[in-house]
Design a protein around this nucleic acid. Sequence first.
DNA 1: CATGGGAAGATTGTATACAATTCGTATACA
DNA 2: TGTATACGAATTGTATACAATCTTCCCATG
Lengths: 233, 233
Amino acid sequence: MAGPRTIVAAPRRTAAEEVYRSLRRDIVTLQHRPGAPLGEQALADTYGTSRVPVREACRRLQQEGLLTSIPYKGYFVSPISPKEISDSFELRSAIETRAVSLAVGRASDRELERLSSLASIEYTYSDWASYADFLDKNLGFHLEVASLSRNDRLFTVLHNLLVSMQRFFFLGLDLGDFGAEMRNEHELLVRHMIRRDDVAAAACAEQQITASYERIRRALAAAEGVELPISEG
Amino acid sequence: MAGPRTIVAAPRRTAAEEVYRSLRRDIVTLQHRPGAPLGEQALADTYGTSRVPVREACRRLQQEGLLTSIPYKGYFVSPISPKEISDSFELRSAIETRAVSLAVGRASDRELERLSSLASIEYTYSDWASYADFLDKNLGFHLEVASLSRNDRLFTVLHNLLVSMQRFFFLGLDLGDFGAEMRNEHELLVRHMIRRDDVAAAACAEQQITASYERIRRALAAAEGVELPISEG
DNA sequence: CATGGGAAGATTGTATACAATTCGTATACA
DNA sequence: TGTATACGAATTGTATACAATCTTCCCATG
């Protein structure tokens, strides 16, 4: 899913890696709420390891923006502020539209065909497990586009950004059933790319990212500071 | 220099932080050559600490792309390949042009005036210390632009990217005296920004980034695999 | 001479113990 | 009552010891 040519490095089975993946999953699926306190020792007890691997995982998540460290107080799940959401979408727009442009110029017909097969995804309204699966496949689609840009550095940065944005999307899915809408968006984008129209494809991506942002904004306005600890940005 | 409103976090004086900063400086100034092997224990001995802080620093540098880890062999300074340079400039172009656009719409006249004062920089040809100072100030200029975008996430990502690209620029400065040229570029960009012409400013930034890439490419072609270990990309 | 096995060395991964720093609180004092 | 201060609890930061894993090289064996 993540990478077609994942020659980079085989992810080894290490405790630090396990803690990292588990913690990240729990954070992006909102099972650890924004603002929730996490201590190294507590996490070590939870995962049955020592503080050293936990520490490594936490520093990684901190660098990716999902955790915030307050020295001698502990780690905290980074709060979700309107500004952070807006900043993230703005940056995503800058990077992903370029990725689409580059991909149009560099991907083979064969690869675009394969991309097309990843465009059709859906979920079941108000089904949590379905949400998780949907977001995973949606991430896969966008990462495939990024990978077709043939730019490893761009891929890595966009990968990190999209992962940290996953929890925003979790907030949005409950607002309504957008499965069909997003599937149509994906398919439209791929059609532009197959036609090798880089300008139209980039504009299409830009517009879809804005639409996604609007969905999140509406979901946030609907929830309006009751369910989740949203900090003022 | 880095940030005007650096409210984010006071950089604590910790051993891991010291090792990180020292190592990063030595890598971007090419005092540690691309491909050079670095072991945790050796670094610990060098810096007079234990492996734990060294490890933390190395993982950070690895995630930023300056170090490459080969399991059970050691860390190595990431090689500089033509593709890595090209990828980096491509990504930089995507992010920085957007940063310029945003800054034009959000910075105050006062801030743009201050930015103007950072534009005039120069260096002395074939003077190493002068190079380091020049690159530092040049970085400061571009980071100030990024900061004026008012997008923290964009700032952080571009910051990391530009830092890791510093060592490319080191290769380029010896090719000739580009001080005046780059100063003119900076001043032209600022003039576009002051005129609040975001399209012209973004196009100007794009063109300048391309020019910078060309300078590096020529420098690399001139050196042609004799002085430095350049891996084939 | 090619090849597989295995021991030795090196490196990373993990656990535990200890030091350093910070924050809250209680308390002494004005 | 208000304020300063000292103490203690909690947490991170660091050092060291040990275990696991990989590489390498040598040697036996076909």
